[in-house]
């Protein structure tokens, strides 16, 4: 079995060697490299390995972030399309059977079932992939909402650069523009409405809840974009904040 340095000592050589696909083995690679005269010292070997691994990992990670983002955005749009079509098929089927007492085309039922399978599989894909790209946002919002926010913003990078007031109304653009034309009050929330902390908070305090959720999701997106490690304390902080808002509601509400 070959070692990476037998093909050259730069990042390209290392990247090619990764495709060899050999089984793991206990080998003294620094000693082997010196023995073969590729490097004079172990330190020289490690220095070259460091430079090459950092460069290759950087390339591959950048590609993977782009791919992951595109996959997630496409998946969440597909999920929305499938859900809409399932609803529409349900409606059509109901109308038809109300009028005639039957739906004579069996394939319609089959089509609905296969749509449902595709929807479930797409959701599983989102649930698996989104936490890899956005661990904190997924932890706080759930994978599907996290994916919708990333898609609406046009990517994690853009989401991470948005002020939380914009995140709060993502997905409510129609309402926002109506407001800007002077036709309507400002929207309190966009897609973050589906977050239980917004939806299940009493109407009086829902605006505050939406602001709190949007604020924490924005921080989560920034941690995901610029740090990448999972910080469970973000979820705990949001829990406390919402508890505070809801108890305030109960306190002066009745």
């Amino acid at each position: 079995m070959t070692a990476w340095f037998e093909r050259g000592t730069d990042a390209d050589a290392l990247e090619t060697s990764l495709e060899d696909g050999a089984e793991p083995e206990v080998r003294d690679l620094p000693a082997l490299a010196v023995e073969k005269g590729v490097f004079e010292t172990h330190d020289g070997y490690y220095d070259a390995l460091h430079e090459a691994t950092v460069e290759v990992a950087r390339r591959r990670v950048d590609d993977a972030v782009d791919t992951a983002e595109r996959d997630i955005v496409n998946a969440v749009r597909t999920l929305e399309t499938l859900s809409e079509q399932i609803n529409e098929l349900d409606e059509r089927g109901r109308d038809w059977s109300d009028e005639t007492g039957r739906v004579p085309v069996d394939e319609i039922v089959e089509a609905r079932e296969s749509h449902e399978e595709a929807r479930d599989e797409t959701r599983r894909f989102i649930e698996e992939r989104t936490p890899e790209l956005a661990p904190n946002l997924s932890n706080l919002a759930g994978s599907v909402l996290a994916a919708r926010l990333i898609a609406l913003a046009g990517g994690l990078d853009k989401l991470a650069r948005m002020p939380s007031s914009t995140v709060q109304v993502l997905g409510a653009e129609d309402a926002l523009f109506a407001h800007l034309r002077g036709d309507a009050p400002p929207p309190k929330h966009g897609v973050i409405y589906v977050h239980p902390y917004v939806r299940e908070t009493d109407a009086d305090e829902r605006g505050s809840a939406a602001r709190a959720v949007a604020g924490k999701l924005t921080i989560a997106a920034r941690v995901d974009r610029y740090a990448g490690d999972l910080r469970p304390e973000l979820a705990e902080e949001l829990d406390e904040k919402i508890e505070g808002i809801r108890s305030r509601d109960g306190g002066d509400g009745s």
């Binding site: 972030v65 790209l133 999972l230």
Partner: peptide, 16 residues
Amino acid sequence: APSPASRLVDVAETRK
């Protein structure tokens, strides 16, 4: 996972 790995590469740059 790409996001943590991105930070890992930054960290690795500080450690020979």
